[in-house]
Amino acid sequence: MPLHKNGVQIEDSWTYLGEEESPTLGDRTILSLDQWKQNREQLLEGNHSYGIVLAPLDEVEELRDDLDRIAVIAVTFPTFANGTGFSQAQLLRRMGFKGELRARGHIIQDQYMYLDRCGFDTLETDKENVVEAWKEALSEMTVFGQPSGDDRQPAYLARHAKGNKAAAE
């Protein structure tokens, strides 16, 4: 699946490990949480970093101790109506995950801003004209009602910040 950053397609050097496959050291593979848990000790022995793919029911807390050894976390949206991934992303960022946070699954243009706000870096999608859609989605709103871990200030702070009076216009 083509990988995009800020709407622009980029090279993806990672591959997903098949369900029946077993991981080997340093493969740049993305493992399910179960695969990671089963092979964790062996994998941590080397000096490599790994990728994890999360499903909505996975507990992100289980990755807390290993975050510095994980380079990519791919958060799955089984349908765009299932927004669990937005909260998983928030928790991962708050736990201090500095690697690539990737969104995969069924995601629509109207969620691009939310992905950006919740700390995602990249998006897997086979849609066309992602650049345009991304640009449109991220420019529609310039006023925000709430903080979200990004640098967009909620209105309740922005309206009291000096020199910010006209920012919304």
Binding site: G83, M113, G145, Q146, Y156
Partner: peptide, 16 residues
């Protein structure tokens, strides 16, 4: 009103 503004287009809680 505080809650109304906070909840509007909440990036994390729009697909509950």
């Amino acid at each position: 009103e505080v809650i109304r503004q906070w909840s509007s287009l909440h990036p994390e809680f729009s697909f509950l």
